[in-house]
Amino acid sequence: MEYFLHILVIAGIYIILTLSLNLMVGFTGLAALGHIAFACVGAYTSSLLALNHGISPWIGLITGACFASLLGFVIGFPSIRLKGDYLALATFGFGVIVYSVSKNWVDLTRGPMGLPGIPKFAVFGFELQPVWAYLILVFVFVLLTAFMINRIVDSPFGRILKSIREDEVASLSIGKDVNRYKLIVFMVGAFFAGIAGSLYAHYITFIDPSSFTMMESIAVLLMVVFGGMGSIRGSFIGALILVIFPEMLRFLGMPSSVAAPLRQMIYGLLLVILMLKRPQGIVGKYRFM
C-alpha cells in the first residue's frame, strides 16, 4: 500500500511537470527540451535554503519556483527567437549546462554526493511523515497547477498563445508582441516546474544531479506528447500512464534478470505503437512540431 501511494506521489509530481511543459510545447508550440533544468533549480534552491539557513520548505518552495522562473527568463530570452528544432536544441543545451553546474559546483551543491537530510514539509509543526499525507499535499499542488494553467489557456492571453502555435508570422502581422508572450510562457512554465522540483526534494529528502538528467526532460516531453499536446486532461493521462505502467510490469512474476530489460522493451514498444497509431497522443488534437 505504502508503495502504491509512493507511486502516486511521484506521478503527481510528474503531472505538474507535464502540465507546465504542455503550456510551452502543447499550447504555445514552443519545442522546449530542457524542462527538468527548472525542476533542478527549484529543488536545489529550496533544499539549500532549508539545509544551510533553516528556512521553512514552504518559503523554499516559493523561492525555488521564483528562481526557476528567473532561469526561464535567462534561457527564454536568447532562445525564443529561434524556431522549431533550433529552439529544441538551444533549450537542450541549456538543460545540459544546468545539469553540469549542479554536478560540478561542489562547494554549493556537493556535486555527485548529493544533498542528504532535506527536511519534509510541516503543517502546524507536524512533519508530513506518512506517505498519504504527502500525497494529499502533492494532490493539492496538482489541482492548483491544473487550475492555473487552465485559466491561462482559456483566457484572451491563451487565445494569443494558440495563435502563436498556429501561425507565428500571422500573430506578428496582426500586431501581437510574439516574443513577449513566449517569454512569459517560459517563465510561467518554469515556475511550476520549480514547484515540482521542490516537492520532489522535500519528499525524497535526498537530491543529487542524477535526478535531473536530460533523460528526465525527454521523459516529461514524452508524457506531454503521449497524453496529448494542448490538453490538460492529456497531461494527467500521459503522466499517470507513463509513471504507473512501468511499475506494473514489475509484477509480471519473472526473475529480475529478465524482468528489468523486458520492462524497458515493453515500454519502448508501447511508445512506438502509440506514435504510429495516434501521433496526436491519447486525447490530444495536435501533432508534435
Binding site: P156, R159, I160, K162, E166, A170, S173, I174
Partner: peptide, 27 residues
C-alpha cells in the same frame, strides 16, 4: 498601420469570427 501578410496566414483551426476577433484582441 496594419499588415495583410503574403499567403493570407490565417489561424486555420479558429472560426471566421475568432480570426476577426484576433485582429482586435487585447487592443
Amino acid at each position: 498601420i496594419s499588415h495583410v501578410p503574403e499567403g493570407r496566414r490565417l489561424f486555420p483551426s479558429m472560426t471566421v469570427m475568432e480570426n476577426l476577433e484576433m485582429g482586435a484582441f487585447l487592443q
